[in-house]
């Protein structure tokens, strides 16, 4: 699958956008493969929403070459619109209409025949756990329900590419987990998801690839693991049955350090198979018994700090926990 190199769902080069004389995007390059989840990770003001707005035809880029769903963004915005679904940061539901009516409105705008519209609406209400709420006006919905309705509305036309701008910002932990499951289900169905988030944990949980956006530029891109490997801090933790084995290990291993646990040691290393083999070989050679071995990679918090030179914002700290 990866060797076939299918047409990218999104291919952008040199994307630039300024508001007045304030540059927001300073030459963004993006490449999103079909059927994957791509996360744009960044703090508030990094340019995430602007990127989504441009890619979803809401605003125009100042310059840059962008193809979305195989269409040139600047010249065929209508064709792009026909292929995408967008759930923005601010809920795009009609508050005076019921959940069901909101979905039927979308079905009408997609020109679905009456029966198909009913079926699709019923199916989405079920899928998003809104059957009971379906007949109530959206104005009465909780934040999580509103977000689900919002996303359900984006899915009425069965788009192959979905933009989610901070889909879980402001949601309680349970609603957030629900939203993650929904995203996973979408991808299992072959949909491409482009999401923005300021939550490291979210990017880690969901994405095939992550681009870290900082000051209008992508400062790093890769899988969560690749990003983690790019920075120091990885180690292998060994736990021993008694002090005799621990002391022996201290003597033969490379740069061991003590752990909080008096019977455990930390050995720096990436956790690659080769280095593990080497480590285990040494322990075997000296007949040192290890009760427990675990590989620790730095979490994305470390990555974010190392890449952007600043800690995650207060907001992120409070909610990524």
């Amino acid at each position: 699958m990866t060797t076939a190199q299918p047409r990218p769902a999104i291919a952008a080069t040199g994307l630039r956008k300024s508001y007045g004389d304030k540059p927001v995007l300073k030459g963004l390059d993006l490449n999103v493969r079909e059927g994957t989840v791509f996360s744009l990770l960044g703090a508030n003001g990094a340019g995430k929403t602007t990127t989504v707005k441009i890619l979803s035809t809401l605003i125009r880029a100042d310059s840059g070459d962008v193809r979305v769903a195989g269409h040139d963004l600047a010249h065929e915005p209508d064709a792009v619109r026909a292929a995408i679904g967008v759930t923005g940061q601010f809920s795009a539901v009609d508050n005076l209409l019921t959940g069901e009516e909101n979905l039927l409105l979308m079905a009408d705008l997609h020109h679905l025949p009456r029966d198909d519209a009913r079926r699709r609406t019923g199916q989405l209400l079920e899928q998003f756990d809104l059957v009971e709420a379906g007949r109530k006006p959206a104005a009465t919905y909780s934040g999580g329900m509103r977000r689900r309705l919002d996303l359900a509305m984006s899915l009425v036309g069965s788009p192959r590419l979905i933009f989610l701008d901070e889909p879980t910002t402001g949601l309680d932990p349970r609603s957030r987990r629900n939203m993650w499951q929904i995203v996973r289900d979408l991808v299992a169905g072959g949909v491409t998801v482009f999401l923005t988030t300021q939550y490291l944990e979210e990017a880690d949980e969901l994405s095939d690839r992550i681009a870290v956006l900082e000051g209008g530029r992508v400062v790093a891109e890769g899988t969560a693991d690749e990003l983690k490997r790019r920075i120091p801090g990885g180690h292998v933790r060994l736990r021993f049955g008694d002090h005799r084995h621990l002391d022996a290990a201290m003597r033969v291993l490379d740069q061991p350090s003590r752990d909080n646990d008096p019977l455990a040691l930390r050995v720096p290393g990436s956790g690659s198979l080769r280095s593990l083999k080497h480590l285990i070989g040494r322990l075997d050679d000296h007949r040192i018994e290890v009760e427990e071995l675990s590989v620790h990679t730095p979490d994305l918090d470390d990555v974010f700090l190392a890449l952007t030179g600043k800690p995650a914002t207060e907001n992120e700290k409070a909610t990524t926990r």
């Binding site: 299918p6 047409r7 079909e34 769903a69 195989g70 065929e76 026909a82 705008l109 192959r160 072959g190």
Partner: peptide
């Protein structure tokens, strides 16, 4: 998943009259 999923379809037509009626409703 098919690699043709995002193949550019024939340019979809707009339906201004039908959409206006939907918005009216």
């Amino acid at each position: 998943m098919s690699t043709h999923a995002l193949a550019p379809a024939a340019r979809p037509r707009l339906h201004p009259f039908r959409d206006s009626v939907t918005m009216l409703r």
